[in-house]
Design a protein around this nucleic acid. Sequence first.
DNA 1: TCATCTTATTAAACCGTTTTAGGAAACCAA
DNA 2: TTGGTTTCCTAAAACGGTTTAATAAGATGA
Lengths: 344, 344
Amino acid sequence: MKKQITISEIANELKLSKTAISFVLNGKGREMGISEQTQKKILQHLEHINYIPNVSARGLRTGKTKTIAMMVEDISDPFFSSIARVVEEIAYTKGYKILFSSTENDSQRARDLIQVFRRRQVDGYIIAPPPCIEPEISELLDDGLAVVLFDRTLPTLKVDNVLVDNFQSSYNGIKHLINNGYENIAMISLISEQIQMVERHRGYQTVMDEVNKQYIIKSVVYHDAVADNISILQNFFIENSHIDAVFFTTNYLAESGLEAIRNLNLRIPDDLGVIVFDDDKLFRLFTPSITAIAQPISEISTQAVKLILMSLTNKGFKTTAQNVLLKTALQIRESSQPRKNTHE
Amino acid sequence: MKKQITISEIANELKLSKTAISFVLNGKGREMGISEQTQKKILQHLEHINYIPNVSARGLRTGKTKTIAMMVEDISDPFFSSIARVVEEIAYTKGYKILFSSTENDSQRARDLIQVFRRRQVDGYIIAPPPCIEPEISELLDDGLAVVLFDRTLPTLKVDNVLVDNFQSSYNGIKHLINNGYENIAMISLISEQIQMVERHRGYQTVMDEVNKQYIIKSVVYHDAVADNISILQNFFIENSHIDAVFFTTNYLAESGLEAIRNLNLRIPDDLGVIVFDDDKLFRLFTPSITAIAQPISEISTQAVKLILMSLTNKGFKTTAQNVLLKTALQIRESSQPRKNTHE
DNA sequence: TCATCTTATTAAACCGTTTTAGGAAACCAA
DNA sequence: TTGGTTTCCTAAAACGGTTTAATAAGATGA
């Protein structure tokens, strides 16, 4: 095990003080009146020996770890992993590293994770919050930690967040189905009080109200066995044979739903139009391709990192919570093509 | 900003020494001869005030950070993100956190990342190595750090790894196509010297040799623009119209390939059988569903964590590098159905 | 009773940085 | 020559744990 080179050793070698090395190392040479000559000497030596500072020591002294925790529902979900990818990349350029973790949308898990992150003294948190986590988030804020929520928010808290317009997106999606001649549109969703889901529901309901149609809603429990969901949805489709289109409120549900549809040998879009909230790289390659409401992954990530870095640097200048609201893009594909039989 | 409670404060409150608190905190109470009574008192107090130790301080003294770096090609790739999910979960139960990052299979990026991780004094590394990274990995090993490679390995290094049998998997997949009557099987792959790719190629070539068929190979550059790849592959299919099946050596290529096939209006499997290395949750929902060679995500993850934890705890007992070789599962679906026209 | 051995506890050093408070040398003005 | 500025640099104290070496008190044995 090779011993790490320390600042003291460098100081000895160069016949200078630790202080001088540290100043130069942190770019405070000029400010602290270290001569150009000495600075150059130190920098060259640091470069030459490929000095690697000890972050634990630095963290201990400064209280900062240059680490951001990112808590999402499921890091293996393509929506979240894509965001993670971009967030990691941007944060890296600013000297931050990201600790990712999956909450499974379970508040107890999330609480445990926050506890772990606190031990590790992460500087900031980017969170897609599960329900009932307000007290813990609130505590983070009280303790002056940087927090940014995304994908969903906690309306009772004053906290930065970056969201998409779930209501409008959902509204536009359903409207698109209506415009294409679909009449009996079902919504498959999760049993959830979370704001993003509520808004998506509201988008659906608003359109249905506008066109004077009955809601046809099936909600399932999050993270029940996939097989269970498939059969539940199959039964739902069988019992509601008048449905001519279906709106899945998340990509996770679409997976089960598309399988149910396939098992029943229903043809898309002739028997059933389909639209999904959240796009997937492969949806455009389906036969027929699947219409989806695509969230702006890259922009969500960029904004989240931007906000967290602002909080991190502007410590204390916290005036008011920032709310970033982004637009989605309706990717119109074959699964929602204009309905033929009703027009013939 | 709430002040963190420190061991010294606890010691004062309880009229004990920091030492005693520390011993009990680390479960060394018995060993160090702290009386049952005192231990209980300390533990209760720790629980009561919800003490959160400062990891920087601990890390500084012990040199351990309880952190593992995980470097993959692309954390947004479902294969890697699924593994990440499981790894994170298992490591968490052992008190470790994972720092994820994407190398883009670029060795310079990987080098930079390793540098960053070294600063952070991560205890171990789980890596899907890009090419030409041997020197850096070697250095990690020399410095006594725990390293586990997965998905691919560096044959010149003595290092733990967990791999799948790329040759056999690929062989079985192609054999399956042959058995189903396909004759002119193309392989779409990446220009790569990496062992996992070489093995997959070898599997293809071996079968083709056995049945006395010409290789039909198209290799593209990693991470060229997707649109470019699509048109390259379209041209390839047009120029080689005798091809009746295609083997994509990674899911990443399948994405472009399936789009090319779709653009050309080729029917799967009638015009073209398809098989992909790496499964995707959605492949089974395609119409027709896509045959894939599925890697055992969960087992890969479990084994990788197991190996890294062994290295981490058995410090110095390093006798010899462990090689774990896992089997894949050929998920036979509609895209490789027995060929009709040749049998009629 | 004195030396010895446990048992229960702790003082102090240490890990490698950052930062505060100050100090030496050189220069300048009067 | 004295006192005041600059300019350049440093000693030493933190940060909050872990660990080593030591010690006080009580028990044991001869």
